[in-house]
Design a protein around this nucleic acid. Sequence first.
DNA 1: CTGAAAGCGCTTACAG
DNA 2: CTGAAAGCGCTTACAG
Lengths: 332, 332
Amino acid sequence: MVRLKDIAQAAGMSVTQVSRALNDHNDVSEETKVRIRELAKKMGYVKNITAQKLVMQVSNQIALVIKGFENVGESIEYNAIYPMLCGMNQYTNEMKYELVVYILQENIDSYISYFQEKGISKAILCGFEYDDEKLHELLESNCTCVCIDIPVEGDKKGCVITNNTLYATQAVEALIHSGKQHIAMLSGTPHAIVSIEREAGYRVALRKHKMVINEAYIFNGDFRKQKARQVTLEVLERHPEIDGFFCASDYMALGCMEAIQTMGKRIPEDIGVIGFDNIPITRYVKPKLSTVAQDDYQKGYEAAKLLIQMENGEMIQKTVTLSCEMKIREST
Amino acid sequence: MVRLKDIAQAAGMSVTQVSRALNDHNDVSEETKVRIRELAKKMGYVKNITAQKLVMQVSNQIALVIKGFENVGESIEYNAIYPMLCGMNQYTNEMKYELVVYILQENIDSYISYFQEKGISKAILCGFEYDDEKLHELLESNCTCVCIDIPVEGDKKGCVITNNTLYATQAVEALIHSGKQHIAMLSGTPHAIVSIEREAGYRVALRKHKMVINEAYIFNGDFRKQKARQVTLEVLERHPEIDGFFCASDYMALGCMEAIQTMGKRIPEDIGVIGFDNIPITRYVKPKLSTVAQDDYQKGYEAAKLLIQMENGEMIQKTVTLSCEMKIREST
DNA sequence: CTGAAAGCGCTTACAG
DNA sequence: CTGAAAGCGCTTACAG
């Protein structure tokens, strides 16, 4: 390993000057800089980031802490983590930060201790649940945090969220515009904030179009395809007048479609269906599922950007709200 | 920030003893250990890993370097990176390593310089191409590397690969066992080693069953769905006797199926199709696609394990070959 | 424009 | 069982 000392020796200069030259300080002669840079390159010098970090008292590490997406042995379905990771990497790379990934196991007592143990001081939190008490404990700490999909603000705490309500409204309106009159909603688990918000959007759309909001038309599909399938079967049995389903996730929409087709009804002629998320499979089912697309890459990019800006003490909005894009295909 | 010095002061001991106590050395009295540990906890001490790394001259970082999976703005399809990441995380977590992710941009002149710049000395390489000259330059360096899906061995260089040939053979045999006589192959880009190996498996199966190997039955689908679709249409035009397709990837199999169905033929009655990879979509298309499943989680786990073992100088096999699992569904 | 010196927080060989 | 001291590789305030 080549150290500054070695270069200094070879150059007949002090370590101080070599350090300054390599860091392009402007109190070093241009000639010296060039000479030192060339020498460093020739000698195969690599800066020891560890030493630099220690002396500069900073960490250029950002932790991406993921929860609820553990791989359970069998091949997992598509999820949005990878595109988000690409977006984060884009920004952290530009800013010379390192992106360290932590995938949480179920059995963690305290996020704070975990973070301390791992030396995490700046983190992007992904997949956490809104009502997780350990999360709120963490949000009281002095760790810089950006939550994805959970609205949070505080001292060095921010979030990147999606305008769920607005786009849920638009999704329901897509059904309304295609002439549907009795629109039901398949919601997700109640402790997921996206469920609550998308449900709100559903209500807004109906109210806006002066349609009756029937609480009995809102069902819990648990974000799971099978559950959604079963619920849909039951619902259509009880309420044969229903002619549209707004589903809070694409997976539920897939189950919903299966149920409708099993009952021998046509999509979208008899019953329209629209989902949320734009998972790849939506383009492969028949009919192709209409849905709402989020830009996961941008979500990751904005999260990393917000985190670094907060860390640098820049005055910025601590909530970044992303837009979505309607993907109207064949199911509406 | 609480340092060892602060604890030492509070405990009325030397920094040396505090360090030893916290690291559970056996030349410290049990009593002292307990006292120091409690004090450290009470004071909220967090070990400064950076300082530890510097003095111990080790890096506990592993880089996951990904190429060819950039997000190009629009939502990307499912890929195997996330499950692999989970597997790597599992092992690195157990061994107290950090997993740092780097997603390569296209415009990199030299991986070696890039690695030096980022201070990467241990890396898992994923998505690289076999005939990438810059890769081979890197493999001559003294960086510890594990390549995924590229067979490589050397000083501190190893790989985790899949037994492609064997399972390609089995896939083709699945078609043969269902009575197919004229089996074509849709291969991928020739500079991907998995193409070459899966093609080899195709030949082995035919030879084993004393069937004629017709070079004109092997087509390049470029690993792309659209290309595969188009090629399939042309092929069936020219060779209407073909009654089976072995596709070197599921995406190509999806294109192939579309083409077959467009021509009004039935799957699997008229033409059988089998893919490779077991992407989630295979279970949603009709008929459900038969394919070969890889365990991506395990692939990641083994890669991390191999890397750390090589780094520690353990005598081990430098090539880890993983098995697959046949998923016979409806398309064969 | 240049250098000697101090110090970041930790570990460990050496000496008791 | 315990402590003083050296040192990991770097940066920068201070003094020229």
